Amino acid sequence: MSTPHLDALQRDGFVVVPNLLSPSEISHYRSIATKATTKTRSGGWPHFRTVPKQFPPWPTTPPPASEGGIWGVQHLMHPDMEDRQSFAKCYFSDSILKVVEELLGVKDAGPDEPLVMELFNLLVAPETKDFELRWHRDDIPETATAEEEVAQLAAKSPGGKQSHAQYNLALCPDASLIVVPGSHRRARTDAERNAEPYAPSLPNQLIVQLQPGDAVFYDSNILHRGVYKGKEEGGEETRLTLHGSFGLKAVGEGDDEKKKVRATAVLQHGVGAWVHREDASFGIGERPEKMRANLVAMGTGEGIGYSLQG
């Protein structure tokens, strides 16, 4: 079976998939994403990412626009999110699942669903000021030695096999993600290790350019950062990027430490607090419910901690 997306991901640590959404889908999702963002900025939705904090936990009240406000809206598929069924149709769409299945080596879902529903959030432009994320890998702390990095990278994707698929799906032109191609397979170089956390450039870095409807799937442990250009307070949204991930149920079975690492990466965002609710069913088919059940089986996330600090 041809696997061009997986080949690119394994080689480079990321792959851009163009035109995952049709023009009508882009228009629809941009509309409901704008509505969700406006509600969150005004304090009407309690789940968000706030400037200047990079990693969870985030504050419970959004900062004022003069301080940057929010840079993300969390839990688009939460039972209390107004357009959650539309967001769920996007998350579980055939076009996205086709790429996810290729990346995770799923040939036939069968009766025992191998995929795990994980996260579906929205990344947005802060107001009045720019905001930058520091260089990082999602699951490996910057304090890791070269030997620890190599060991952890190998453990998280043994033989190049992916344990989860993570992506950004743009609804507006997006050049926010910066990566160092190939860094998902090696320890940091001396230049990378000694660079300032917010260094504007690293050798061989690449700015991922997305047009509306394009997605980038990337290894979460590639060396990467985000640059968020601020927008005018109250002005049109200039960044609306859907940020999602799927896990692979089979990975880590019989290995409690691997299970804990992935559970922490997912449940630290608070999804375990609502995914088990009776009203959390999506009503859009059997597979989404099986994937949701696989997430419920991971636990609530209470006391599990956080992957990174800051």
Rank of each mutant, 00 (worst) to 15 (best):
L122F: 07
L21P: 06
Y167F: 15
A199D: 09
A88Y: 07
S176I: 04
E236G: 12
A263G: 10
R277V: 03
L177A: 04
L153P: 06
S2H: 13
R262M: 12
V227G: 03
G244I: 03
S24Q: 14
H269C: 02
E278M: 04
W45D: 03
R30L: 13
M77V: 10
I26E: 02
V17G: 05
V99S: 07
R186T: 08
G270C: 04
H276L: 00
I207Y: 00
A297K: 14
E113W: 04
S31V: 00
T3K: 15
P158Q: 09
D256A: 15
R30G: 00
E286V: 11
S183F: 10
H224Q: 12
S176P: 08
Y228G: 00
L177R: 03
G159Y: 02
E142I: 10
D112I: 11
R41Q: 14
A187S: 14
D83G: 02
R41W: 05
I222W: 04
F282L: 15
H78M: 01
E302A: 14
M77S: 01
P111K: 12
K89A: 10
T38R: 15
S22M: 11
A195C: 11
I70R: 02
H78D: 11
R239A: 05
G182R: 09
T128K: 12
S176Y: 03
Q85T: 15
K39M: 11
P52I: 10
R188I: 01
I222R: 05
Y306P: 06
N168C: 09
G283S: 09
E147D: 15
P63D: 12
P141I: 00
A250H: 08
L171C: 07
G285T: 10
F92P: 00
L21H: 07
L177C: 08
